[in-house]
Amino acid sequence: MGPRPRSFYVLAAVFTLFVVFLYGPTVTIAILSFQGPQGGLTFPMRGTSLHWFRDLFEQQAVGDIWGAFRRSLILGLMVMIVTVVVSVMGGLAFRKRFHGSGALFYLMIAALVIPSILVSLGVGLLFGRAGLPVHWATSGFGAQLTWTLPFGLLIMFAVFNRFDPAFEEAARDLGASPWQTVRHVVLPIIAPSLIGVALFGFTLSYDEFARTLLTAGSYNTLPLEVYGMTTNVTSPVIFALGTLTTVFSFAVIGVFLGGALAMDRRRKTRAGGR
Protein backbone atom coordinates (compact mmCIF):
# COMPACT_ATOMS: atom_id res chain seq x y z
CA MET A 1 0.00 0.00 0.00
CA GLY A 2 1.54 3.23 -1.14
CA PRO A 3 0.84 6.71 0.18
CA ARG A 4 -2.72 7.89 -0.29
CA PRO A 5 -3.36 9.84 -3.51
CA ARG A 6 -4.56 13.40 -3.28
CA SER A 7 -8.00 12.33 -4.52
CA PHE A 8 -8.39 10.39 -1.28
CA TYR A 9 -8.48 13.58 0.76
CA VAL A 10 -10.93 15.29 -1.58
CA LEU A 11 -13.25 12.28 -1.52
CA ALA A 12 -12.89 11.88 2.22
CA ALA A 13 -13.98 15.50 2.60
CA VAL A 14 -16.99 14.89 0.33
CA PHE A 15 -17.86 11.79 2.33
CA THR A 16 -17.63 13.69 5.60
CA LEU A 17 -19.90 16.41 4.25
CA PHE A 18 -22.36 13.73 3.13
CA VAL A 19 -22.43 12.24 6.63
CA VAL A 20 -22.96 15.69 8.13
CA PHE A 21 -25.77 16.24 5.63
CA LEU A 22 -27.33 12.91 6.64
CA TYR A 23 -27.10 13.38 10.39
CA GLY A 24 -26.96 17.16 10.86
CA PRO A 25 -30.70 17.84 10.84
CA THR A 26 -31.40 14.92 13.17
CA VAL A 27 -28.79 16.15 15.64
CA THR A 28 -30.24 19.66 15.40
CA ILE A 29 -33.74 18.62 16.39
CA ALA A 30 -32.27 16.46 19.13
CA ILE A 31 -30.66 19.59 20.57
CA LEU A 32 -33.77 21.72 20.02
CA SER A 33 -35.99 19.19 21.79
CA PHE A 34 -34.30 20.31 25.02
CA GLN A 35 -35.62 23.87 24.49
CA GLY A 36 -36.83 25.75 27.52
CA PRO A 37 -40.61 26.06 27.99
CA GLN A 38 -40.64 29.37 26.07
CA GLY A 39 -38.48 28.11 23.23
CA GLY A 40 -39.56 27.85 19.60
CA LEU A 41 -38.94 25.64 16.61
CA THR A 42 -35.54 27.08 15.87
CA PHE A 43 -32.49 28.55 17.58
CA PRO A 44 -31.76 30.38 19.81
CA MET A 45 -32.27 28.05 22.72
CA ARG A 46 -34.27 29.74 25.43
CA GLY A 47 -32.82 27.78 28.27
CA THR A 48 -32.66 24.02 28.45
CA SER A 49 -35.27 21.78 29.96
CA LEU A 50 -37.04 18.46 29.70
CA HIS A 51 -40.30 20.36 29.38
CA TRP A 52 -41.20 19.02 25.94
CA PHE A 53 -40.37 15.44 26.84
CA ARG A 54 -42.60 15.78 29.89
CA ASP A 55 -45.36 16.99 27.60
CA LEU A 56 -45.16 13.72 25.69
CA PHE A 57 -45.96 11.77 28.81
CA GLU A 58 -49.06 13.79 29.57
CA GLN A 59 -51.73 11.93 27.71
CA GLN A 60 -54.10 14.75 26.76
CA ALA A 61 -51.42 17.16 25.59
CA VAL A 62 -50.55 15.60 22.25
CA GLY A 63 -53.02 12.84 21.47
CA ASP A 64 -52.54 9.13 21.86
CA ILE A 65 -48.87 8.75 21.04
CA TRP A 66 -48.25 5.91 23.45
CA GLY A 67 -51.13 3.90 22.03
CA ALA A 68 -49.75 4.66 18.56
CA PHE A 69 -46.29 3.58 19.66
CA ARG A 70 -47.64 0.31 21.05
CA ARG A 71 -49.50 -0.40 17.80
CA SER A 72 -46.46 0.40 15.67
CA LEU A 73 -44.34 -1.85 17.84
CA ILE A 74 -46.72 -4.82 17.56
CA LEU A 75 -47.22 -4.25 13.84
CA GLY A 76 -43.46 -3.99 13.33
CA LEU A 77 -42.91 -7.32 15.10
CA MET A 78 -45.70 -8.99 13.07
CA VAL A 79 -44.25 -7.69 9.82
CA MET A 80 -40.74 -8.68 10.89
CA ILE A 81 -41.62 -12.30 11.63
CA VAL A 82 -43.66 -12.79 8.47
CA THR A 83 -41.02 -11.06 6.34
CA VAL A 84 -38.23 -13.31 7.62
CA VAL A 85 -40.21 -16.55 7.21
CA VAL A 86 -41.71 -15.74 3.81
CA SER A 87 -38.44 -14.31 2.43
CA VAL A 88 -36.46 -17.39 3.42
CA MET A 89 -39.07 -19.68 1.85
CA GLY A 90 -39.14 -17.53 -1.26
CA GLY A 91 -35.35 -17.33 -1.41
CA LEU A 92 -35.10 -21.14 -1.23
CA ALA A 93 -37.77 -21.56 -3.90
CA PHE A 94 -36.21 -19.10 -6.34
CA ARG A 95 -32.93 -20.99 -6.37
CA LYS A 96 -34.53 -23.43 -8.77
CA ARG A 97 -36.60 -22.49 -11.75
CA PHE A 98 -40.19 -23.49 -11.44
CA HIS A 99 -43.21 -22.73 -13.57
CA GLY A 100 -44.13 -19.11 -13.12
CA SER A 101 -40.98 -18.16 -11.24
CA GLY A 102 -40.22 -15.48 -13.80
CA ALA A 103 -43.68 -13.96 -13.53
CA LEU A 104 -43.55 -14.01 -9.75
CA PHE A 105 -40.12 -12.37 -9.82
CA TYR A 106 -41.47 -9.50 -11.89
CA LEU A 107 -44.49 -9.24 -9.61
CA MET A 108 -42.05 -8.75 -6.77
CA ILE A 109 -40.22 -6.02 -8.71
CA ALA A 110 -43.62 -4.46 -9.39
CA ALA A 111 -44.28 -4.40 -5.65
CA LEU A 112 -41.11 -2.36 -5.24
CA VAL A 113 -41.86 0.17 -7.96
CA ILE A 114 -45.62 0.64 -7.67
CA PRO A 115 -46.16 3.97 -5.90
CA SER A 116 -47.03 3.47 -2.26
CA ILE A 117 -50.15 5.58 -2.50
CA LEU A 118 -51.61 3.09 -4.99
CA VAL A 119 -51.18 0.26 -2.51
CA SER A 120 -52.77 2.37 0.19
CA LEU A 121 -55.68 3.47 -1.97
CA GLY A 122 -56.24 0.03 -3.53
CA VAL A 123 -56.15 -1.92 -0.28
CA GLY A 124 -58.39 0.67 1.37
CA LEU A 125 -60.93 0.48 -1.48
CA LEU A 126 -60.79 -3.31 -1.59
CA PHE A 127 -61.43 -3.75 2.13
CA GLY A 128 -64.13 -1.11 2.08
CA ARG A 129 -65.97 -2.72 -0.82
CA ALA A 130 -65.56 -6.24 0.54
CA GLY A 131 -67.07 -5.09 3.81
CA LEU A 132 -63.96 -6.04 5.75
CA PRO A 133 -63.00 -3.76 8.61
CA VAL A 134 -60.00 -1.58 7.78
CA HIS A 135 -57.58 -2.10 10.64
CA TRP A 136 -53.84 -1.67 11.08
CA ALA A 137 -53.40 -5.35 11.97
CA THR A 138 -55.19 -6.61 8.85
CA SER A 139 -55.24 -4.22 5.89
CA GLY A 140 -52.35 -2.16 7.25
CA PHE A 141 -50.34 -5.31 7.92
CA GLY A 142 -50.86 -6.64 4.38
CA ALA A 143 -50.14 -3.29 2.74
CA GLN A 144 -46.80 -3.05 4.58
CA LEU A 145 -45.84 -6.58 3.56
CA THR A 146 -45.96 -5.58 -0.12
CA TRP A 147 -42.98 -3.32 0.67
CA THR A 148 -41.00 -5.40 3.20
CA LEU A 149 -41.25 -8.76 1.41
CA PRO A 150 -39.54 -7.59 -1.82
CA PHE A 151 -36.74 -6.09 0.29
CA GLY A 152 -36.39 -9.30 2.26
CA LEU A 153 -36.32 -11.31 -0.96
CA LEU A 154 -33.72 -9.05 -2.56
CA ILE A 155 -31.49 -9.69 0.45
CA MET A 156 -32.13 -13.43 0.20
CA PHE A 157 -31.26 -13.39 -3.51
CA ALA A 158 -28.00 -11.62 -2.72
CA VAL A 159 -27.29 -14.19 -0.01
CA PHE A 160 -28.05 -17.25 -2.11
CA ASN A 161 -26.09 -15.90 -5.08
CA ARG A 162 -23.03 -16.13 -2.83
CA PHE A 163 -24.01 -19.45 -1.25
CA ASP A 164 -21.70 -22.39 -1.88
CA PRO A 165 -23.88 -25.37 -2.89
CA ALA A 166 -21.04 -27.73 -1.90
CA PHE A 167 -22.28 -27.64 1.71
CA GLU A 168 -25.68 -28.91 0.69
CA GLU A 169 -24.22 -31.53 -1.60
CA ALA A 170 -22.07 -32.75 1.29
CA ALA A 171 -25.12 -32.94 3.53
CA ARG A 172 -27.05 -34.82 0.90
CA ASP A 173 -24.18 -37.25 0.34
CA LEU A 174 -24.17 -37.93 4.06
CA GLY A 175 -27.83 -38.88 3.81
CA ALA A 176 -29.56 -35.75 5.06
CA SER A 177 -33.15 -35.28 3.96
CA PRO A 178 -34.01 -32.01 2.17
CA TRP A 179 -35.55 -30.68 5.38
CA GLN A 180 -32.51 -31.71 7.44
CA THR A 181 -30.26 -30.00 4.90
CA VAL A 182 -32.17 -26.76 5.25
CA ARG A 183 -32.52 -26.99 9.00
CA HIS A 184 -28.97 -28.01 9.93
CA VAL A 185 -26.89 -26.66 7.04
CA VAL A 186 -28.53 -23.84 5.10
CA LEU A 187 -30.27 -21.95 7.91
CA PRO A 188 -27.23 -21.81 10.24
CA ILE A 189 -25.08 -20.52 7.38
CA ILE A 190 -27.51 -17.76 6.38
CA ALA A 191 -28.53 -16.88 9.96
CA PRO A 192 -26.59 -13.56 10.15
CA SER A 193 -28.29 -12.36 6.97
CA LEU A 194 -31.64 -13.23 8.49
CA ILE A 195 -30.89 -10.70 11.20
CA GLY A 196 -30.56 -8.14 8.40
CA VAL A 197 -33.90 -9.18 6.90
CA ALA A 198 -35.53 -8.94 10.33
CA LEU A 199 -34.05 -5.48 10.87
CA PHE A 200 -35.37 -4.28 7.52
CA GLY A 201 -38.77 -5.84 8.15
CA PHE A 202 -39.15 -4.19 11.53
CA THR A 203 -37.81 -0.74 10.74
CA LEU A 204 -39.54 -0.39 7.35
CA SER A 205 -42.82 -1.25 9.04
CA TYR A 206 -42.18 0.91 12.10
CA ASP A 207 -41.52 3.98 9.92
CA GLU A 208 -43.99 3.31 7.11
CA PHE A 209 -46.36 6.13 6.41
CA ALA A 210 -47.85 6.08 2.90
CA ARG A 211 -48.95 2.43 2.87
CA THR A 212 -50.67 2.71 6.25
CA LEU A 213 -52.33 6.06 5.55
CA LEU A 214 -55.56 4.60 4.13
CA THR A 215 -55.25 1.12 5.56
CA ALA A 216 -54.82 1.70 9.31
CA GLY A 217 -58.47 2.40 10.10
CA SER A 218 -59.42 4.42 13.14
CA TYR A 219 -56.32 3.69 15.23
CA ASN A 220 -53.17 5.48 14.12
CA THR A 221 -49.71 4.01 13.96
CA LEU A 222 -46.89 6.20 15.22
CA PRO A 223 -45.86 7.73 11.84
CA LEU A 224 -49.50 8.65 11.17
CA GLU A 225 -49.72 10.23 14.61
CA VAL A 226 -46.51 12.19 13.97
CA TYR A 227 -47.80 13.33 10.62
CA GLY A 228 -51.03 14.49 12.25
CA MET A 229 -48.94 16.49 14.69
CA THR A 230 -47.05 18.28 11.92
CA THR A 231 -50.27 19.96 10.82
CA ASN A 232 -51.40 21.23 14.20
CA VAL A 233 -48.47 21.22 16.62
CA THR A 234 -46.04 24.11 16.34
CA SER A 235 -43.99 23.59 19.48
CA PRO A 236 -40.77 21.68 20.09
CA VAL A 237 -42.84 18.80 21.47
CA ILE A 238 -42.72 17.38 17.95
CA PHE A 239 -38.91 17.51 18.07
CA ALA A 240 -39.00 15.71 21.40
CA LEU A 241 -41.15 12.98 19.87
CA GLY A 242 -38.91 12.83 16.80
CA THR A 243 -35.85 12.52 19.01
CA LEU A 244 -37.41 9.75 21.10
CA THR A 245 -38.47 7.63 18.10
CA THR A 246 -35.10 8.16 16.43
CA VAL A 247 -33.32 7.09 19.62
CA PHE A 248 -35.62 4.07 19.72
CA SER A 249 -34.77 3.25 16.07
CA PHE A 250 -31.05 3.58 16.81
CA ALA A 251 -31.46 1.27 19.80
CA VAL A 252 -33.26 -1.32 17.67
CA ILE A 253 -30.57 -1.09 14.97
CA GLY A 254 -27.88 -1.39 17.65
CA VAL A 255 -29.46 -4.52 19.11
CA PHE A 256 -29.75 -6.20 15.71
CA LEU A 257 -26.24 -5.28 14.62
CA GLY A 258 -24.88 -6.37 17.97
CA GLY A 259 -26.67 -9.68 17.54
CA ALA A 260 -25.19 -10.17 14.07
CA LEU A 261 -21.73 -9.28 15.34
CA ALA A 262 -21.98 -11.66 18.30
CA MET A 263 -23.15 -14.46 16.02
CA ASP A 264 -20.27 -13.83 13.65
CA ARG A 265 -17.74 -13.80 16.45
CA ARG A 266 -19.07 -16.99 18.02
CA ARG A 267 -18.87 -18.68 14.66
CA LYS A 268 -15.28 -17.58 14.13
CA THR A 269 -14.14 -18.80 17.56
CA ARG A 270 -15.85 -22.10 16.94
CA ALA A 271 -14.27 -22.47 13.54
CA GLY A 272 -10.91 -21.54 15.07
CA GLY A 273 -11.34 -24.09 17.83
CA ARG A 274 -11.54 -26.96 15.43
Partner: peptide, 18 residues
Amino acid sequence: AGWLLVSPLALVLSAFLV
Protein backbone atom coordinates in the same frame (compact mmCIF):
# COMPACT_ATOMS: atom_id res chain seq x y z
CA ALA B 1 -41.69 -27.77 -3.99
CA GLY B 2 -41.13 -24.33 -5.50
CA TRP B 3 -44.78 -23.48 -5.45
CA LEU B 4 -45.24 -24.67 -1.90
CA LEU B 5 -42.37 -22.45 -0.80
CA VAL B 6 -43.53 -19.35 -2.62
CA SER B 7 -47.24 -19.78 -1.94
CA PRO B 8 -47.24 -17.38 1.06
CA LEU B 9 -45.43 -14.76 -1.03
CA ALA B 10 -47.77 -15.25 -3.97
CA LEU B 11 -50.76 -15.08 -1.65
CA VAL B 12 -49.70 -11.82 0.00
CA LEU B 13 -48.81 -10.16 -3.31
CA SER B 14 -52.09 -11.29 -4.91
CA ALA B 15 -54.25 -10.09 -2.04
CA PHE B 16 -52.46 -6.83 -1.28
CA LEU B 17 -51.00 -5.84 -4.63
CA VAL B 18 -52.70 -7.45 -7.62
